[in-house]
Every structure is written in C-alpha cells, then in structure tokens.
Amino acid sequence: MNLFVYDKTFDGLLSVIFEAFRLKLFPDALRGPADDLPLLAGRVVRVETEAEKAGRVWRGLQNRLSRPALRSLMNAWLTVADEAADELIVRYARRIFAGGDEADFSDPDVLAIREQSQKVAREKMHLIQFVRFQKTAEGIFFASVAPRYDVLPLVLRHFTGRFGDQQWIIRDLARGYGFYYDLTRAREVRPDGQADLAAGRLEAGLPAEDEILFQEAWKKYFQAVSIESRANPKLQRQYMPRRFWPLLIEKQ
C-alpha cells in the first residue's frame, strides 16, 4: 500500500498529483502531517507543497476540464476535512489526465465528484437560507453560522449583493473566523481582539432598540403560519436540518 503524506492544503494536494505522475506511483491513501500512520504502511511518500508543481497541475486541469467541472472539483475539495475527498480528487485527476471524460457518469469517481460538489452546493444554499442577522446598537447586522463545510467564502457575493447598504458580520462558529462587510467590501476577520466576534450570540444590552421586538414578531409569524393539525416534524427536519436550529431565532 502506498501512502502519501502532505500538508492538507489544496496546493499540497496538487503537488501530490504532480509527484504521483513523476514517480509513476499512485497513493492508495493520503494522510496529513499530524495523522498517525498505519503500522503496515507499505511505501510512504512525503510530499512537499510547491507552488510551481501545483501550478502546473492546476493549469493542466484547467486545460482539460470545463468551467463547471473545475468548479465541481473545487467544491469537492471543500469536503476534504470530513470525507476524504482528497483521495477521490487524486483518482479523478489521474483519470482526467489519462484522457478520461469529465461527463462519463458511469465512472464512480466522476459521479462522486459531482455528488460531493452537490453536497457543498447544498450547504452553501443552507447558509443563504438560514443566516439570521441580529441588529446591534451600533447598527451592524450580525449573524453566527456553523456550516458543515467551509462554505462561508462562497456566499459572500450573495450577501454583499443583497445587503449592500447595511454593515454586516457573519461568523463561522465552527472554524472561528468570519467576514465583516463595511459597505464597500467583505473582509475576513479573526476573533482576536474583535469583541463582537468573540461571543457567538449578542450579549444582552448590545442589540438595537427594536431588535427583540422584531425577533418576537418573527417568532409569532412563524407560529401563526404553521398548520398544527398537519404537523410533520420529519419533513420539517428534512428541509431544515436540526443542526441549524440552535441559530434560528424562530426555533428558540
């Protein structure tokens, strides 16, 4: 069994692909620098991340893949922390470089890339749906989210387009960073020193004067439009997975 170790970055993964072709040796499994190696690992290859190699692989993929397919591949990468998408991407790249067809969905890896990408697209959609802003006394609209994948950067365009005339902050609780939109552009912010980013929810006293009233109005609206006699919690959870509920005002 061939095991490749790399730094778990996207450039690192592209470097893995480069090395695999150079060595004519393809990984059966990938590990990060901090992972334990299995006792019976066969050959272990440690790959250094190099921008030059990564760039060559990336240009190669750009030449061979359509834009949607390239986007699917990038999306699939975002699931790497959770679902070993890196091994999938290496197999997929190998196939593409060997002349394989990006639309041959009878191939399990081609189909899997598409499926991973769709999962990311769904998570992105969930953010667009379930972000809930709370207005602070300073007039900034603040939201906390905890998406399954690192999709916050993918929705910035949506939120700057839609809420272009209000200042907002969206914080990813799971990854400990966020974006602040200052009426001109959205900037990445890390929690250090950012008092308002440190708390997941707004502290009492911080909300704008009417904030609690609007939250209350929204909750009442939510209750008023439900038809209790037709309650179907399973269906509700299917569309609005429970992991989002803690951050939804109407479910509190």
Binding site: Q129, F130, F163, F222, S226
Partner: peptide, 18 residues
Amino acid sequence: AVGNAVSWGVCHSYTADG
C-alpha cells in the same frame, strides 16, 4: 438599494408541517 431576487427562490424556514 437593499435586496435582490434570485430566480430559483429561497426558502428561509419551514413550518411545523414542512
């Protein structure tokens, strides 16, 4: 201005009856 509309529509929540 505030807002845009996207052609596929967005559900922001789901009622108890789904």
